[in-house]
Write a protein that binds this DNA or RNA. Structure first.
Lengths: 324, 324
DNA sequence: TGGTATTAGTTAATCGATTAGGCGATAGAC
DNA sequence: GTCTATCGCCTAATCGATTAACTAATACCA
């Protein structure tokens, strides 16, 4: 039941375990182990169903060929898809990943990072939160290659891959404006790493002199459902009728849409793509992120850093506006 | 930049690295290292920001405190949630997890398993497919603790945690029957690990003498969209009007619902819960799996096996039928 | 004072790999 | 016939921890 080690192969073939290591790693010829012996060792390894012990290998080489991924919550559709593509890309570059959920809680995030570091991951991809600057700085000061994705901590000297949320929300607003809407509302969280999504809107509205504070709904995280109901009820009963509503996030949309009954009279827009959108029976505009491309970019950046690329790089992706 | 090891602490305090190990592991007193020295070592470790190297520890102890999880696709809502809860439970029991996506492709599944084994995981939780019996047998023959979840391979001597799909589909059919429906259709894949979901239906329909082959739609994986359109169009134009449609899976539902236009005239039911269901504006019946409980059960079973529990156990959970 | 317990901490082996350097044997050159 | 190259494989150190076994020192008791 005990697993087969190089020593076992060495014993069987009658050589030292180092020779086995050389033969199996393909460095046999370079290190002058005869062709015949290499073959015999490889053959024996196969017969014995030898599988290398990655722990031992990593301990010795100092490389784990593993990337750590810190996200908020894998059960979230966006992060699920993000992780999926990160894994695909990492795999194709010879890396594996360990995913940890922080639930956006600083302590859990710290635990996640500690875990990843103790497991000697070669680099870390992280979705940062407002409060993770200390954690991120620590990773950097330890010299561990590091890339932020989806969001970034302003002022932190680290690479990141994000969507141009500002531009996307501006484009969304402009689209509704072009369709004749002037009363365009924004449903947003009070403070959020995603506030670029409301700033682009504000900019456009103000530039076109149609901004109205009544149209901006600030929802607290703490009582999202309650706030949403109250705010949307008030919004929809304004005397100057609302013509369009933009939700800052998929979650706000899912929770808020319940309170909008006239879904065909009011134009609705939201961020992120969801399998759910294929079953809605009202026109819905949504901002799709090129998740796969962003995931690939993040992995490529990180692997670049692992391979010695020192410069901090930021990649900003353009959103795609779609209608269902 | 180099990380701090026990040796570094030992040098600083002026003792051997073994004493450091004893002190930090809490075995100091039992192994007769003086209280004062223990304290001094612990203090120094803190000052030096010592973090243990888990690779070295695992290599030595033979335990990684890591569980491997093999699922089809983490970007899938169900698996995302499943992994999330598996991770939570594992964490609370002192384990971490490594998630791998098999995409239901045997070769990838094999790679996943190999990876997990080479990383010396203490146990494996896997969502098996029709074709994974060889892979599963190999895990078992290697003596690696193993639990199947969501599905199971018939005849394999391994523990599993599943939903009682048979009973759920029977209950679903019965519900519609009680509401007066007699023409109840089933949209299913031809062969699927989830066919319990159609067998319960068939049993009920036959028992009540209302079974009709025209009401059972067999969809191929290979051309799901095309098959769905053709099959549903034909179904909905039958002279004996269909009164209810049951989808075997969330994916079939998402893809098929497009072709059912009269969503309020026909009763619709599907499996699994989705965030999307909160935004549908027609009555929808769905079978909710107690994912969290199932995930916890799977982890608990696996950890039990790791701790020497040899008996094969199967846990079958009851579905909850909900309406939105 | 001699013999046994107890306490405190060290030595050395080990987990399974990698890799620089070493050593003996054969072959070719002069 | 000796000297040097080349070949083929092994020795030994190393990564960072754990732990059984051992030594040395002190305490206790009659």
């Amino acid at each position: 039941m005990k697993k087969v080690s190089m020593q076992d192969i060495a014993d069987k073939v009658g050589v030292s375990r180092c020779t086995v290591s050389l033969a199996l790693s393909g460095k046999g010829r370079a290190k002058r182990v005869s062709e015949a012996l290499c073959d015999r060792i490889i053959q024996t390894a196969k017969e014995m169903h030898y599988e290398p012990n990655e722990l031992a290998r990593s301990l010795r080489t100092g490389l784990t060929k593993t990337l750590g991924v810190v996200i908020a919550d894998i059960s979230n559709e966006f992060f699920g898809e993000l992780s999926y593509h990160i894994q695909k890309r990492a795999n194709s570059l010879g890396y594996n990943i360990i995913i940890t959920n922080s639930d956006e809680v600083p302590d859990k995030m710290l635990d996640s990072i500690r875990l990843l570091i103790n497991r000697q991951v070669d680099g870390i991809i992280m979705v940062p939160t407002n409060s993770s600057i200390d954690i991120a700085s620590r990773i950097i000061s330890l010299g561990i290659p590091f890339v932020q994705v989806d969001r970034f901590i302003p002022g932190l000297n680290a690479s990141y891959v994000i969507l141009d949320n500002y531009k996307a929300s501006e484009a969304l607003t402009e689209k509704f404006y072009a369709e004749g809407c002037r009363r365009i509302a924004m449903v947003k969280h009070k403070t959020s790493a995603l506030n670029g999504r409301s700033e682009g809107y504000e900019k456009f509205m103000k530039d076109h002199k149609i901004y109205d504070g009544d149209l901006v709904l600030n929802i607290r995280y703490s009582d999202e459902a309650g706030d949403l109901k109250i705010a949307l009820d008030r919004l929809l009963s304004l005397s100057k009728k609302v013509e369009a509503v933009i939700f800052q996030s998929h979650e706000l949309f899912l929770n808020g849409i319940k309170y909008i009954h006239d879904r065909k009279g009011i134009k609705i827009a939201t961020f992120d793509k969801s399998a759910a959108y294929s079953i809605v029976d009202f026109p819905l505009v949504f901002v799709e992120q090129p998740i796969k491309e962003m995931a690939y970019a993040a992995v490529d950046l990180l692997v670049g850093h692992i391979n010695g690329q020192k410069d901090v790089v930021s990649k900003v992706f353009e959103a795609i506006i779609r209608e269902s």
